[in-house]
Amino acid sequence: MFTGSEIVDLLTRLGISHVVWIPDSTLGMWDEALSAAENLEVVRVCREGETWPVAAGLALGGATPVVMIQCTGLFESGDALRNILHDYKVPLFAFIGYRSYLSDATIPNDSACKYAEPILDVWNIDYRLIDVPEKLAVIEEHYRSCREAGQPGAALIAEGKA
């Protein structure tokens, strides 16, 4: 959907300081560009539950992080995001890979695809589905809107393979 340089350009425009992430096969394509980007630190965690508190600590300390994980990691990290976004109301923004949305050839009838949007709804995370390259600007617009409102948000990035 997007090249690494397109994502780095976007994050730079948004003033992002840290990407707290675990790659999947789509997000992972951005690794080289993210790692090479000036003024952008990649924090590589071992399990997605860490992403929310690490990003929260960064935000409380004055940095401007985003979380970047696959929807399976969103499922895994439910309690951590509940605590950070809803108990402490730290308004983090996440890029979430939407596994199998564009094609379920790798995992037919992928339940990860079935439950991603309902889970985001349940956790009360305002998200935008990014399913075509032309929607890159939607991410920027949604991020700025969430920042201005002091609310958490997400960009759900459609993926074609697991």
């Binding site: 539950g49 929310w52 508190p53 929260a56 300390g61 992080p65 605590n83």
Partner: peptide
């Protein structure tokens, strides 16, 4: 407190990196 159990270390890491 309240916490997501196990995540204090991660939150502290974020603070340490930002500060």
């Amino acid at each position: 407190v309240p916490s997501s159990m196990g995540q204090a270390t991660s939150l502290g890491l974020g603070v340490a990196l930002a500060q």
